[in-house]
Simulated assay, not measured.
Amino acid sequence: MTSTDSTTTSGSGPASRSALVAALRAAGCVFAEDEAELILATARTPAEAAAMADRRASGLPLELVLGWAEFAGRRIVVEPGVFVPRRRTEFLVRQALAERPGARVVVDLCCGSGAVGAALAAALRPVELHAADIDPAAVRCAARNTAAAGGRVHQGDLFEALPGELRGRIDILAANVPYVPTDEVGLLPAEARDHEPLVALDGGADGLDVLRRVVAGAPGWLAPGGLLLIETSERQALAAAEAFTAAGLATRVAEDEELYAQVVIGTRAG
C-alpha cells in the first residue's frame, strides 16, 4: 500500500486519501488533490495527516499547515505570523543571479522568512549573506532558513538593522518590501489578510512608502556596480522606477507575465 493510498484518522474516524481530497475540495481548496498529496507526504503519521487536513479545511494557509513553502527549488520553513514567500518572487532571484552571478555580498532586506536570501546564497556560494527584518518572528524564521549558508540575521528598521561594515560593499540588495496600498489590505485573500503580519503587507497610501525609503538609502550601501532589486505591482512600476532614477541608479523594469511579476532593478554606477 502506498502512502497516498493509506488511511488516515481524524476525530470523525477513518478517512481515505479520497476522503481527504473531498474534504479539502468541500472547504474550497481549488487544488485539493495536490494539497492532499503534500499533506500525506509531509505528515509523519496518519493521525497527523488527518489533523493537518482539518487545519487546512478550517482556512489555515497550506504553507502553515505543512510548515514549509517551496521556493526556488528549496523548502523554506514558514512559521505562524511570518510572511509566506510567493512563487512570483522567484523572478527577482533569477534576475539578481543573471545580473550579478559573481556577487559575494548579499543582503535580503525586509526578509520575512529569508527565502530570497537563502535562494541567492545557495546559488552563489561562497557568499557573505545578511538578512534583516523589523519583525522578531521573521528574524527567528529567517535565521533557520539561512543557517546553512552562514547567514547573519538582524532585527531593525531597514538599514538601521545592518552592521555599518556593509556600507559600500553590497553586491546584491534584494528588498521584498510591502507594497499593498493601505486601503486595499482589506481586499487581500483571507489567507494573507488573516494570517500574515500587517507590517509585511501595508505599503502606505500608494503602496510605495517603504520602497521609497529603501531606494533613498540604498546607494550608500551598494558597492560600485551593486544591484538593488525590489518587487512591485504592474501599476506601481513606473512610479517605483522614477524613485530609483531620482536616487541616481541606472534603472530598468523586468517583467514576467506568466508569474505576474514586476521587479525594478537599479545599479549603482561603477
Rank of each mutant, 00 (worst) to 15 (best):
A223G: 02
L20F: 08
G11F: 03
L166V: 03
E231F: 06
C141S: 10
I170D: 02
Q155N: 00
A27R: 14
A200H: 09
L20Q: 09
V93Q: 12
R252Q: 10
F71C: 15
E90N: 13
T251H: 06
V106P: 07
L38P: 08
Q155S: 01
I265T: 01
L198P: 02
F83H: 11
I39M: 10
A72Q: 15
Q155L: 04
A27M: 13
G28W: 12
A57W: 10
D5H: 13
P80C: 14
A241I: 05
L66F: 10
L173E: 03
R167E: 09
P80G: 14
L66R: 09
V153R: 03
A118T: 08
A22W: 07
A175N: 06
A148T: 09
F83T: 05
S16G: 13
L129V: 04
A47H: 10
E128T: 11
Q155H: 01
L60F: 03
V65T: 15
I76Q: 14
W221S: 08
A36F: 08
V65D: 14
A27C: 15
G59K: 11
D133Q: 03
E196Y: 04
F159Q: 04
E128I: 00
S3C: 05
E99F: 11
P101Y: 12
E234N: 00
A200F: 09
R86W: 11
H195P: 00
Q262V: 13
E234S: 09
R74G: 13
V30K: 14
P189D: 00
D209G: 01
L173Q: 01
P136Y: 04
H154C: 07
A143N: 00
L38F: 12
A49I: 09
L62H: 11
A26C: 12
D202C: 08
A15I: 15
L64Y: 15
R94S: 15
A241M: 05
A131C: 10
A223H: 02
E196G: 03
E33N: 12
A121E: 04
A57Y: 09
R125Q: 14
S6N: 06
W221F: 07
A57N: 11
T7N: 11
R75F: 10
V199T: 14
A148C: 00
